[in-house]
Amino acid sequence: MDYPHSERLHQLTSQYRRQLAEVGETQRKLREISCTASAPRHAVTVTVTHGGVVADIKFPSGAYRRMAPAELAGVLLKTLAEAQRLARRAAAEVVAPTLPPGMDAQKLFSGEVDLQSLLTPEPELRDVTRDLMDIRD
């Protein structure tokens, strides 16, 4: 027996499964992000993962030995910031195809997008509807 809405239900189920698989693939790609930045003269090299988590810090040359502590700290922080910028860019490239048209993934990952602006405003509800739903302001 064929029900009138069975084909539509099958389409929706297939669409859901496809989207679920895409989300899993996006998460896998995000977990694989690893970006490395090097300071001038290779005083320091910093590797970060998605989210900017520091995975490794190396001092590939002896250049750091000739630096004052404050200078080394500055170079380290600048190199870390560059590695994090590269990781944000890589994450934005992974996520961009999943975003609504017109949304800039780079701006989203840099914090330039007001996330509240993406939400629809709360709909106007009549008093009777509020009573039925037991919602109060």
Score class of each variant (00 low, 15 high):
residue 15 Q to G: 02
residue 15 Q to L: 11
residue 15 Q to C: 05
residue 15 Q to H: 04
residue 15 Q to F: 02
residue 16 Y to P: 00
residue 16 Y to L: 15
residue 16 Y to N: 14
residue 17 R to C: 06
residue 17 R to L: 15
residue 17 R to N: 08
residue 17 R to E: 09
residue 17 R to S: 06
residue 18 R to C: 09
residue 18 R to E: 09
residue 18 R to N: 01
residue 18 R to M: 10
residue 19 Q to G: 01
residue 19 Q to R: 10
residue 19 Q to P: 05
residue 20 L to N: 06
residue 20 L to S: 03
residue 21 A to G: 07
residue 21 A to T: 04
residue 21 A to Q: 01
residue 21 A to Y: 00
residue 22 E to H: 06
residue 22 E to M: 13
residue 22 E to Y: 05
residue 22 E to Q: 12
residue 22 E to D: 00
residue 23 V to L: 01
residue 23 V to I: 08
residue 23 V to K: 09
residue 24 G to R: 11
residue 24 G to H: 12
residue 24 G to N: 05
residue 24 G to W: 01
residue 24 G to L: 03
residue 24 G to Y: 04
residue 24 G to T: 00
residue 25 E to Q: 07
residue 26 T to R: 15
residue 26 T to M: 15
residue 26 T to Y: 07
residue 26 T to Q: 12
residue 26 T to F: 13
residue 27 Q to L: 12
residue 27 Q to C: 13
residue 27 Q to D: 01
residue 27 Q to Y: 03
residue 27 Q to W: 03
residue 27 Q to N: 06
residue 27 Q to G: 06
residue 28 R to M: 03
residue 28 R to T: 07
residue 28 R to E: 03
residue 28 R to P: 00
residue 28 R to S: 11
residue 29 K to A: 15
residue 29 K to S: 12
residue 29 K to G: 12
residue 29 K to T: 04
residue 30 L to M: 09
residue 30 L to C: 02
residue 30 L to D: 00
residue 30 L to T: 07
residue 30 L to E: 01
residue 31 R to M: 03
residue 31 R to K: 12
residue 31 R to Y: 09
residue 32 E to T: 00
residue 33 I to V: 14
residue 33 I to Q: 02
residue 33 I to A: 09
residue 33 I to E: 00
residue 33 I to H: 02
residue 33 I to R: 11
residue 33 I to M: 06
residue 34 S to E: 11
residue 34 S to H: 08
residue 34 S to K: 06
residue 34 S to I: 01
residue 35 C to V: 00
residue 35 C to K: 02
residue 35 C to F: 03
residue 36 T to M: 04
residue 36 T to F: 13
residue 37 A to W: 14
residue 37 A to M: 10
residue 37 A to R: 04
residue 38 S to D: 11
residue 38 S to V: 15
residue 38 S to W: 14
residue 39 A to K: 05
residue 39 A to I: 01
residue 39 A to H: 06
residue 40 P to Q: 10
residue 41 R to P: 00
residue 41 R to F: 08
residue 42 H to R: 15
residue 42 H to Q: 14
residue 42 H to W: 14
residue 43 A to H: 10
residue 43 A to E: 05
residue 44 V to Y: 10
residue 44 V to F: 12
residue 44 V to I: 15
residue 44 V to G: 10
residue 45 T to C: 15
residue 46 V to D: 06
residue 47 T to W: 06
residue 47 T to A: 11
residue 47 T to Q: 09
residue 48 V to T: 08
residue 48 V to L: 06
residue 48 V to K: 13
residue 48 V to D: 05
residue 49 T to G: 14
residue 49 T to V: 00
residue 49 T to A: 13
residue 49 T to N: 04
residue 49 T to F: 04
residue 50 H to R: 08
residue 50 H to N: 15
residue 50 H to D: 07
residue 51 G to H: 02
residue 51 G to K: 07
residue 51 G to L: 00
residue 51 G to E: 04
residue 52 G to M: 02
residue 52 G to T: 12
residue 52 G to L: 02
residue 53 V to F: 03
residue 53 V to D: 05
residue 53 V to R: 02
residue 53 V to H: 08
residue 54 V to T: 05
residue 54 V to G: 05
residue 54 V to C: 10
residue 55 A to E: 07
residue 55 A to Q: 11
residue 55 A to N: 12
residue 55 A to R: 14
residue 55 A to H: 13
residue 55 A to W: 06
residue 56 D to C: 09
residue 56 D to A: 11
residue 56 D to N: 13
residue 56 D to I: 02
residue 56 D to E: 14
residue 57 I to P: 15
residue 57 I to D: 12
residue 57 I to L: 12
